[in-house]
Design a protein around this nucleic acid. Structure first.
Lengths: 225, 225
DNA sequence: GGATTTATTAATGCATACGTAAATGAATGC
DNA sequence: GCATTCATTTACGTATGCATTAATAAATCC
């Protein structure tokens, strides 16, 4: 969840954040429609900031403003998921590549190291939720280290979109143990400045993740999430 | 320019389009600030739709809403340009890869073929403006053929952002004659279903374009455009 | 009874009104 | 003369009001 720390504490932004939270928590399920008035009452403000927030979320692909129907919470079909994963694959791999070229020392790479050991710990204690958290952190830190702010933004948006789907499939899929060795390999490649390796390994990692998720959605007949 | 054809003919959207046009034409130059009231008067509507449009453009990275300063037209520094080009490189290459895997016939690839011959014609008659147009068309058609709607959207946004810079440097740079053989190679790779080649060639092509543009901005001391 | 037309409702898109708080300039103190 | 305080302006953020128009219900006709 990107909280946009530097932004002003305006109602419009509160609305955007709260709506996001409501969407991710599932309180506003995919496919549901909500009139502006209803949301305004729920968040205790007028329609104006709600509208502005909805517009922002629409630009980010989370909702759709349907005249007379209100804001429609968008779900992700399997095809949507494939699209998003493909983008994540490319842009994160780019980030890995660039991060490797920056010659980061152990200190700068500490967040990655930390995330990896957290994942291992979580895996040891069978805490999948914690694992997912650390995994998120790894990916977002990786992108940060890549140093392309636009990539960071786009990946943030896309990660938001798949978050719900991921949490649904989290308990279905096989223990992500291979995932960890992948992550460590990426980290090593970055630390040793091998940009092409970092890119290739991460690319393969994400491609694999995409296959697994899509297969799960397929077998479980989850059309939209 | 993406005109978003299916969208309702609301003032808010008119505002977004017109503001975009004003920005690209340079009438609202990078770095300038414009009060909401001023823009409202200019487009002959109230602040509300202006505000909504500005919010949308902000989400797309074209402007910034500064309290008390109005909407600030964002320029692109050399670093910004590098960021955008890197993203275009990755996502368009992905599109080329995916397009090659779809087994398109000559009919589906006609727009690409057309764009290429238009570029050649334009080059023959030294019409750089026409060349740039056809080049745009090639890239946007390529992305369309890739079939990932989100990629299409993101690339559209990024292309918007570099458009101004490109038109500034259009007359400075060497005749883009190599560009054409690159394009044809990409087309051939797609037509023959060689996804990896399509990706690699396009990647190299974009990487080269990035270098050229950045060098130009460097030598001409163009800090922001 | 079913289909078509008309009336009613109500949600949106937009305009407008207003309080607040930032920025500018005036006024005061030293 | 310079700094500090106070007053004034004004742009924004938000609330509210209103006309439009899509959607629903009612009513009429065949």
């Amino acid at each position: 969840m990107q909280t946009t720390p530097g932004k002003p504490a305006t109602n419009s932004h509160r609305a955007a954040e709260e709506l996001r939270a409501l969407i991710f928590s599932g309180e506003l399920p995919a496919g549901s429609n909500h009139l502006e008035t209803e949301l305004a009452a729920r968040l205790q403000m007028s329609r104006t900031p709600i509208r502005e927030a909805a517009l922002t979320l629409e630009a980010q692909g989370l909702v759709e403003l349907k005249p007379r129907k209100g804001v429609r919470i968008l779900g992700l079909s399997a095809e949507d998921m494939a699209e998003v994963y493909d983008i994540l694959t490319e842009l994160e791999s780019l980030a890995a590549h660039q991060a490797a070229m920056k010659g980061y020392g152990p200190l700068a790479l500490a967040p990655l190291t930390q995330a990896i050991s957290d994942m291992e710990a979580a895996l040891g204690s069978d805490d999948l939720r914690a694992w997912a958290d650390a995994d998120d952190r790894f990916h977002s830190e990786l992108v940060k280290l890549g140093g392309n702010s636009r990539v960071e933004m786009i990946v943030g948006m896309m990660a938001d979109q798949v978050r719900r789907a991921r949490s649904m499939t989290l308990f279905m899929r096989p223990k992500p143990s291979k995932s960890n060795s992948d992550h460590r390999q990426v980290l090593d490649a970055i630390a040793s400045g091998d940009a092409d390796a970092a890119r290739a390994i991460h690319h393969a990692h994400r491609t694999e993740a995409k296959k697994i998720i899509l297969a799960l959605l397929e077998t479980h007949q989850l059309r939209t999430v």
